[in-house]
Nucleic acid binder design. Structure first.
Length: 258
DNA sequence: GAATATGTTTAAAT
DNA sequence: CATTTAAACATATT
């Protein structure tokens, strides 16, 4: 999977490597997750110049000037891999982009769930990196769900997935089981700080590690989230519990509200 | 060989 | 009707 920090780095790397280049051809291997036909998609992007790559929520957006924009969601297991024209495509490739200069990248997903969306609807949900403390407070005050569910709700805040939700909540010392609307104002302030801090630190670590290569997600630096981690950095044993079918990792350092 | 990991959509159950 | 839960997706890794 890739969450906000990984995608931010991917967008930067892709811009650096391919921006301004002409997309000579696009191969579509799996077409069941497209919003238009393969032919239509190819027609929209082939022989167009890639003018920019952005991250929006958990998606990447590939801009082709006035010709349109292509949204990519990697879903659970999607990955991006660099390719050369004369090489065989990686296993489980869904689509491949070939630019001038015999270079390009492939979207690989063993689950075949990554989605490519031509000219997607504009995202109106606040981004986790941009949301203000006030917005976050208002959002939480309206929800009776568990705070972790709200953080991961892409219709509420975009960009946070299962692993970073755990990391952020540990950093803020808030139990993932807390009821969102019961979290006091002062603690919301801390949550807001932790959210930006954890995400920005992850971006900087992944960026430093990946340099200008498109690598899979890197999560060695996780403090809490991961079945192999036994203790928090402060020495507390890590507990786990399923929230909405996904595993939440946390410790007793984290206060439960409500 | 069973459990786990992972996001989203959709269906089913409460 | 609202809310919660589960299934589906496909496969590699532990």
């Amino acid at each position: 999977m890739a969450e906000l920090p990984d995608l931010t780095v991917f967008a930067r790397t892709l811009s650096h490597r391919f921006e301004g280049k002409l997309l000579k051809s696009m191969e579509i291997i799996v077409d069941k997750k497209l919003n238009v036909s393969g032919t239509e998609l190819k027609k929209a992007v082939e022989n167009k110049k890639l003018t920019g790559v952005d991250r929006v929520g958990k998606t990447l957006q590939f801009h082709f000037g006035n010709s349109g924009m292509l949204g990519l969601h990697l879903m659970l297991r999607g990955e991006l891999k660099e390719i050369k024209a004369d090489q065989e495509l990686p296993k489980h490739t869904i689509a491949a982009f070939h630019f001038t200069g015999a270079e390009g990248f492939a979207i690989v997903d063993l689950l075949k769930q990554a989605t490519l969306t031509l000219n997607p609807k504009e995202n109106v949900v606040p981004d986790a990196l941009l949301i203000s403390e006030k917005e976050l407070g208002v959002l939480l005050s309206k929800r009776s769900k568990k705070v972790k569910e709200v953080l991961m709700d892409q219709k509420a805040i975009s960009g946070i997935g299962n692993s970073y939700a755990d990391e952020i909540l540990w950093d803020a010392r808030i139990s993932p089981l807390s009821v969102a609307r019961e979290i006091p104002e002062k603690v919301v302030k801390q949550l807001h700080v932790s959210m930006k801090k954890v995400l920005k630190e992850a971006i900087s670590k992944i960026g430093a590690e990946n340099k200008n290569e498109l690598m899979g997600e890197l999560r060695d630096f996780m403090n809490i989230h991961g079945a192999h981690i036994k203790k928090s950095p402060t020495g507390y044993p890590i507990k786990s519990e399923k929230i909405n079918g996904r595993t939440a990792y946390f410790t007793t350092e984290q206060k439960k509200y409500g």
